[in-house]
């Protein structure tokens, strides 16, 4: 067991009953973390991350396994406290704001012997939901989650995917202002994945700020306003999707010439339209444009080489951004390691 950890849950919680204020988040940031660091034994899990998550935004935490996403989330939740740096949640601390936060931890857990309705009700009451009408509310939600009539069943009788949806329900039943979901899509089939996607969208529409971590780039791309990419405890990207698109969307063309693809690719390179050209098996050609190139001019120049079946500006692909940034940051880590040595 790793020691040398300090836990922040005690100081505020062991003192007098917390009387959380309903202070609005300062400067419209639902979460603001400043230079937080966390070390577990010899592993520096988080190396000085700072970020702000605006109110009512939908923010994706991306990053490879073991990057420090869950540690960062647990520090936001005040389940563990950072070694240094500060965390502000809804203008206060997560400890004081517990009842206004919904949290789905990475490791799922339910009381196996408890009935579904009872479990969700218990969590709701712990978060301050009044018992009047609660059962009805739970039933409505279960229906919405395509789990009608499971209220009286024991948690252990449900499938893994169903249990996950119940846990998600337990984290949103109290209509939180901030919803933190650690890997909400893992282990869900496409139908349930879509159901959860819709649910996240509706929670945002209700006015909640949502942070979720995921490995699924297409989900993040489809859902997020903002993405934060964490790799090896460092933040390597923090941008809105709009910013990313502006930066990456016009960086390439996808052409489908009516002539031989390879000949077209060579010609495009020779005329200096692209810095790299790849002929694909299906007869299309990917052209990478040099930074600062006018995309419209490049399209006109491409049309002069050969007639086209189709031609389009290549859309940004978060997968590529992810691979590129993680690759770059890994390279820097290796370089740094060599220098240190």
């Amino acid at each position: 067991m790793s020691l040398g950890m300090s836990f922040g849950t005690s100081s505020a919680s062991s003192s007098a009953p917390a009387a959380p204020s309903r202070a609005r988040p300062s400067g419209n940031a639902a979460v603001r973390i400043d230079n937080v660091m966390k070390r577990f034994g010899s592993v520096q899990a988080v190396k000085g991350i700072s970020l702000e998550i605006p109110e009512r935004s939908l923010c994706g935490f991306l990053g490879p396994n073991g990057a420090g996403k869950s540690t960062t989330i647990r520090m936001i939740m005040s389940i563990i406290s950072p070694d240094s740096g500060s965390v502000e949640v809804l203008g206060s601390s997560a400890l004081a704001m517990k009842d206004r936060i919904g949290y789905l931890p990475e490791e799922r857990g339910l009381y196996r012997k408890m009935k579904v309705g009872e479990f969700v009700g218990y969590m709701a009451k712990l978060k301050g939901v009044h018992p009047t009408g609660l059962a009805r509310r739970i039933d409505d939600w279960l229906e919405r989650l395509a789990l009608p009539g499971v209220s009286k069943r024991r948690c252990e009788e449900l499938s893994k995917g169903q249990q996950q949806k119940i846990q998600l329900l337990a984290s949103i039943i109290h209509a939180p202002d901030l919803l933190i979901l650690d890997e909400p899509f893992s282990g869900l089939d496409p139908i349930n994945g879509r159901l959860v996607t819709d649910l996240i969208r509706s929670e945002q529409a209700r006015g909640a700020t949502i942070i979720f971590s995921t490995h699924q780039m297409h989900t993040a791309e489809a859902l997020c306003d903002k993405v934060v990419l964490i790799n090896k405890g460092d933040k390597v990207l923090d941008a809105t999707l709009a910013e990313l698109r502006a930066k990456h969307d016009d960086r390439g063309l996808v052409c489908e010439p009516r002539t031989d693809a390879r000949t077209f690719a060579d010609a495009a390179l020779a005329r200096g339209i692209a810095t790299a050209a790849r002929a694909n098996d299906g007869g299309s050609v990917d052209l990478d444009l040099a930074p600062g190139t006018d995309a419209d001019a490049a399209m006109r120049a491409a049309l002069e080489i050969a007639p086209m079946r189709s031609m389009a500006l290549r859309r940004m692909n978060l997968d590529d951004v992810f691979v590129e940034l993680v690759g770059k940051s890994d390279g820097e880590h290796k370089k740094g390691a060599r220098i240190d040595a």
């Binding site: 919680s13 939740m77 517990k98 857990g109 339910l110 969590m123 846990q167 337990a170």
Partner: peptide, 15 residues
């Protein structure tokens, strides 16, 4: 059961 972290999001260890 890993239900501990869910509980800790709703109540402090002391509670």
């Amino acid at each position: 059961n890993k239900v501990m972290e869910v509980l800790l999001a709703a109540a402090s260890p002391m509670q």
